[in-house]
Design a protein around this nucleic acid. Structure first.
Lengths: 339, 339
DNA sequence: CTGTTAGCGCTTTCAC
DNA sequence: GTGAAAGCGCTAACAG
C-alpha cells in the first residue's frame, strides 16, 4: 500500500510546522489565508485524511461501538443490527460486529478484544452456550469496570447492566390466548430446551395462558427441540405421538416446519389445525398459508439498545441500570381460524 | 467508566519505569524474575489489557478489516459475512461492518471512514444506487492508493482490484437449460432492472440457454421488478398478461412469490408450471413445494474474499488483481418436474 | 500569524 | 537488570 500522507509530510512540503498544517486544515483563523489555501489544495490533491487511530487515541475514545451476537444469519439478529447501525451512525459512531457463533469461548474472546479500547461500548446478546454454562465472569468484568454495556434479547436478569428485551411472556400468552379464543382445545408448544432464556419465557406465557383458562398443561404436548439434531424429525415425532388442533411455536422455522408436516399428513390449515409462530420474518410472510405470528420488533430493539448505550457512553455520572421491555403484537394471517 | 489501567499506572505502583513494566508483561528475560511476577500478578488482578488503539497506532496496522455491504437483512449477505468472519478471525483480524443501505452516499462515506487507518483492508459489495449512478471515484481512490480491496458479488468489471464473483451466467444458463430439458416450452424470467449487474448476468444466462436451443427470446416473458414498487403486483401482472410453463427467477423472494401466485391461480406445481430460483436460503427450503434453486455458495464466497484480502494486505510487493469465479450448482427439489 | 511542547498508551533501541 | 528516549499521527495549550 502506498504510504499514507501525514501532517508531517505536508509540513515538510511547505517548510512549516506540523501544528500549522493541522490548524490550516481546520481552517483556523490563526493561519494566513494564503498559506491555508495552499495547504488545503495540496491536502485535497493528495487525499489527506487524518489517521483515525491517532485521533481516537488522542481523544481517548474510538467512536465505534461493538456488537457481539451469536449469529448473523438470522433475520431477527440482522434486523436488530440494522436498528443499531441506524442510530449509531446518526450519532457519528461506527459499529464493529463480532460473531460468537453460539460459542462461549468465542464470546469471551470477542468481548475481551473489543473492550480493550477498540470500542466505546458494547451491545451483546449471549450465545446459547453461555446460557447453558451459566457463567458470566466476562460480562461481570465489564460491569465492574463500569464499561458501557447493553444486553438485548438473550439477557441474564441478574446482571447489573442496561437491557432491552422483548416481552416474551406476554407475547406468547397473547398468542396462546388467541388460539384458545378461536376454539383450539389442545394446543401443542414447540420450543427450545429450557436453558435458552427466551424459550423458557415463551413457554411460561403459554403455560400462563392455559392456566388462566383453567386448562390443564399437558407436558406431552410440549416438544423441546434440540437443534443439534434434525429439527423436522423431532417435530414429526410430536405429530406421531400426540393429537392437537393448535400449535404455538417459538420461532418461524419451527412454525413453518410444523405447518408443512401438518399439511403432508393431510391436515387442513387452519380448519384442522391453527398455527402461530414467534418472530415475524420473510419465511412467515411467504409461507402457505401466510403464518400468523407474534411480531417482535427487532429494528426497534436495535435502536433502543443503541440509544441506551450512547446515553451511557456520553453520561459523565453513573446511574442505575435501565431496562426496556418491548411489547409484541399479534399479526394475524391465514394460519389461524378467524374468531 | 472507570479509568483504564495503563502501563504508566502500574509503573508508578512499583516505582519502576514504563518500559520495565512493558517488558515484564512480555515476560522479557531482561527483567528480574521476582519483579516480573509481582508486576504480572498485579496486572492480572487489575485486568490490565494493552490499549489496542495505541498498539495499533504503533504498529501502523489495525488488524481489522472493513466490510461495506448494501444490506445485512438478506440471507446471502449474512452468509458471506460469516465466511469472512471465519477466515479473518483465524488470522487474528476483526471485522468492522458498515451498511450502505443501497445508498451511494452512505457507501462513499463508509468507505471514506474506514480507509482512514481504521482498517487494513476493505471488502465491498456495491449498492444498487452506485451501480445505477455508475460512478466509482470512491473505489478508484482506494485503488490509486494501493489500498487493499476486494469486491464481491456486485462488482464492476473495469475496476482494477481483486474480485470474487458468482458465475451468474452459467448458473442461470444451467437453470434455464434444466427447465428446457424437463419440457418447458415457454419460460418466463423474473429479474431485476438491468443496472443491477447480477440481474443482467443472470438474464444473459437465460437468454443464452434459450438461444442455444434455438428458442426465440420473447421479451414479453421477461419481467423486470422494480423493488420500489410492490413486488407481488408486478409478478401478478406477468401472470395476467402471459402464458408460460416455466419460470426462472433471479432470487428466492421472486421465485416463491411467483410460486404462491401460481398456486392461487389454480396451477399445480410442478405439473403445470416449473419454477427455479437463484440463491438458496431458508425461504426456498421451507416453501411448498420446496424450491429448486441455483445454489450460490455465500459462505465460500466470504472465505475466498477474505483470503484474497489477507494475501493482499500481507504481501510486500504489489501484484495483478485477481478474480475468483465461484460456480453454482443446481439443487433440484420439488418445484420442477423430474426429467 | 506561526512554532514549540507535551501528551494520548505503547514499543523498541540503546545506555547505564 | 533497569531506565531514558524517541516515535507512531495527531491535538491543544502556550509562547513568541
Amino acid at each position: 500500500m502506498r504510504p499514507k500522507i501525514t501532517l508531517k509530510k505536508i509540513a515538510k512540503e511547505f517548510n512549516v510546522s506540523i501544528s500549522t498544517v493541522s490548524k490550516a486544515l481546520k481552517d483556523s483563523h490563526e493561519i494566513g489565508i494564503e498559506l491555508k489555501e495552499k495547504i488545503n489544495t495540496y491536502a485535497k490533491l493528495h487525499h489527506y485524511k487524518p489517521n483515525s487511530l491517532a485521533v481516537r487515541l488522542q481523544n481517548q475514545q474510538s467512536k465505534v461501538i461493538g456488537i457481539v451476537i451469536p449469529n448473523i444469519v438470522h433475520h431477527f439478529f440482522s434486523t436488530v443490527i440494522q436498528g443499531i447501525e441506524e442510530v449509531t451512525n446518526e450519532n457519528g459512531y461506527n459499529v464493529m460486529i463480532c460473531l460468537s457463533n453460539e460459542s462461549f469461548d468465542k464470546e469471551v474472546m470477542n468481548i475481551g478484544m473489543l473492550s480493550n479500547g477498540s470500542v466505546d461500548g458494547l451491545i451483546v446478546s449471549m450465545s446459547k452456550e453461555t446460557q447453558r454454562n451459566n457463567s458470566y465472569d466476562h460480562i461481570n468484568e465489564l460491569i465492574d469496570n463500569d464499561f458501557p454495556l447493553v444486553m438485548f434479547d438473550r439477557v441474564k436478569e441478574e446482571l447489573k447492566c442496561d437491557k432491552v428485551i422483548i416481552d416474551d411472556v406476554n407475547g406468547s400468552l397473547n398468542a396462546t390466548d388467541h388460539l384458545i379464543e378461536i376454539g383450539c382445545k389442545k394446543i401443542a408448544l414447540i420450543t427450545t430446551p429450557s436453558h435458552v432464556t427466551v424459550g423458557q419465557l415463551r413457554r411460561k406465557g403459554y403455560v400462563n395462558a392455559l392456566q388462566k383458562k383453567g386448562v390443564q398443561v399437558d407436558l406431552d404436548l410440549i416438544a423441546e427441540i434440540d437443534e443439534r439434531q434434525n429439527i423436522q424429525d423431532q417435530i414429526e415425532e410430536l405429530f406421531e405421538e400426540q393429537e392437537f388442533d393448535g400449535i404455538f411455536a417459538v420461532n418461524e422455522v419451527y412454525a413453518v416446519t410444523a405447518m408443512n408436516i401438518a399439511r403432508n399428513r393431510g391436515l387442513n390449515i387452519p380448519e384442522d389445525i391453527s398455527i402461530i409462530g414467534f418472530t415475524d420474518g420473510p419465511i412467515s410472510k411467504l409461507a402457505i398459508p401466510p403464518l400468523t405470528t407474534v411480531v417482535q420488533h427487532g429494528f426497534s430493539m436495535g435502536k433502543q439498545a443503541a440509544q441506551l448505550l450512547l446515553k451511557r457512553i456520553e453520561s459523565k455520572v453513573s446511574y442505575e441500570p435501565q431496562k426496556v421491555v418491548l411489547s409484541t403484537n399479534l399479526k394475524i394471517r391465514k394460519s389461524t381460524k378467524s374468531v
